[in-house]
Design a protein around this nucleic acid. Structure first.
Length: 430
DNA sequence: AGCACA
């Protein structure tokens, strides 16, 4: 025998697996229908539907391999094909041995929907039209819209998950009725998932966001610039709306800025509840959440314009975010919810050191005793707020790729699904 | 109608 080992398998055939791969499903197909389909042949332990680019594929996992074989065998010789909603579905053994359910927030029912409006003219859809469309299913509390690489998106907040679900079920994949749109506009299709949010933060009524529960909310100042709803004060300086969540962007990022680094930097001013990092405009940005606005104000004043590393590297620019509570869906190397104790994914190292309860009077500098650098807020900090004494911030120049003694950065580079960030950041779907 | 992720 010449070639024994890695013979490419015959195209489109797979060795038996407990997991079956289904295609040509109607996109409305639900997990319940998949279970119904598989139940006659055995115990369905897991399913996944709306898979693939067209969301018309699915997986069924049986408890036992023989059950999967039974189903394949049955339909292989049956005169009636397997059907869902009258549509013939094609089955085969999956090339995977188990279904991994990356249940993201998009799958977990909630009262807020993430709506992606598809179509060439998507961004011309007004918030009023969206309000009209979604109001058919119940009282719409708030809507925010924003533009992402995924396109034009909106978050639509209902009272409860049931109402949101009815709207999602009815509208997902459908197009906005033509009579609601100006004549010249092309079709606009709605793609809907659940958002991780439960209460949107709407500070102004504007063409981009509305709070229908509060008609007296002030109308947005006409000149809203950049990310931090800035108004102009009497002195001509920008007045920003303070928030407990800071938006930090990092300029001249010659050296990697990790979640742990940010956590340490911002923990100097108080307990950091959540951090989410994401790429924006080719640079790195992060949202840092404190329990209260006072702490955020102190941190912003202290850190704005300073550099994480000597030599002008990784300069921080900080503004207030419009968020008040970040929605962290998964703890990974880009985002973390530090308020959840002993998160499975939580990594050792710095986190471990800082796991001591970080409670202190709001507005007071957090004395992070565990980290040994909690000598108050960097009141006297000049240009180097981060250059504390415990070698954590060994200047990159002197020790480029090495860890400082005692430091163990997480070694795994898990590329878990990026977390989904909030409304104005990125509510997934990038 | 052909294998999942943001």
């Amino acid at each position: 025998m010449a070639s024994v080992s890695s013979q490419p398998q015959f195209r489109y055939t797979q060795p038996p697996s407990k997991v079956l791969h289904l295609r040509n499903l109607p996109w409305e197909c639900t997990e319940e229908e998949l279970i119904e389909l598989g139940k006659p042949f055995g115990k369905v332990v897991n399913t996944k539907c709306n898979v693939g680019a067209n969301r018309n594929q699915a997986f069924i996992e049986f408890a036992d391999l023989n059950q999967a074989i039974a189903m394949i065998s049955y339909y292989a010789s049956s005169s009636e094909p397997a059907q869902v909603r009258g549509k013939t579905v094609y089955l085969q053994y999956s090339n995977r041995q188990e279904i991994v359910n990356n249940k993201t927030a998009a799958d977990v029912p909630g009262n807020v929907l993430l709506v992606t409006i598809e179509g060439a003219d998507a961004r011309l859809v007004s918030i009023d039209v969206l309000h009209l469309v979604f109001s058919a299913f119940g009282f719409v509390h708030k809507i925010t819209t924003f533009e992402k690489t995924a396109g034009f998106q909106a978050l639509v907040q209902f009272s409860d998950a049931e109402t949101a679900t009815s709207a999602k079920d009815a509208l997902d994949g459908r197009s906005i009725p033509r009579y609601l749109l100006p004549e010249h506009m092309g079709p606009c299709t709605l793609r809907i998932t659940y958002s991780g949010h439960s209460d949107l933060s709407v500070k102004f009524q504007s063409h981009r966001s509305r709070d229908y529960t509060n008609p007296y909310l002030p109308v947005a100042p006409s000149a809203v610039e950049g990310s931090g709803q800035a108004m102009v004060g009497l002195d001509g300086k920008r007045l920003e709306t303070e928030s407990n969540v800071l938006l930090a962007s990092i300029e001249n990022m010659q050296y990697a800025v990790t979640l742990d680094v940010l956590h340490m930097v911002f923990s100097a001013f108080g307990p950091v509840q959540k951090i989410a990092m994401f790429d924006k405009n080719g640079g790195l940005q992060a949202l840092i959440q404190y329990p209260d606005t006072q702490t955020a104000v102190v941190a912003k004043e202290a850190l704005e314009g300073h550099c994480i590393y000597d030599g002008g590297f990784c300069k921080l620019h900080i503004s207030y975010s419009r968020h008040t509570d970040l929605s962290i869906k998964v703890n990974n190397d880009r985002s973390r919810d530090y308020t959840i104790p002993n998160t499975p994914n939580a990594q050792p190292s710095i986190l471990g050191q800082q796991s001591a309860p970080m409670v202190g009077p709001p507005g007071q500098p957090y004395n992070g005793s565990q980290t040994g650098w909690g000598s108050g807020p960097p009141a006297g900090v000049q240009s180097m707020p981060m250059q504390m004494h415990n070698n954590v911030y060994m200047p990159p120049g002197s020790m480029p790729q090495q860890m400082a003694p005692g430091m163990q950065f997480p070694s795994h580079n898990s590329s878990q699904p990026t977390t989904t960030l909030p409304a104005y950041g990125s509510d997934r779907a990038q």
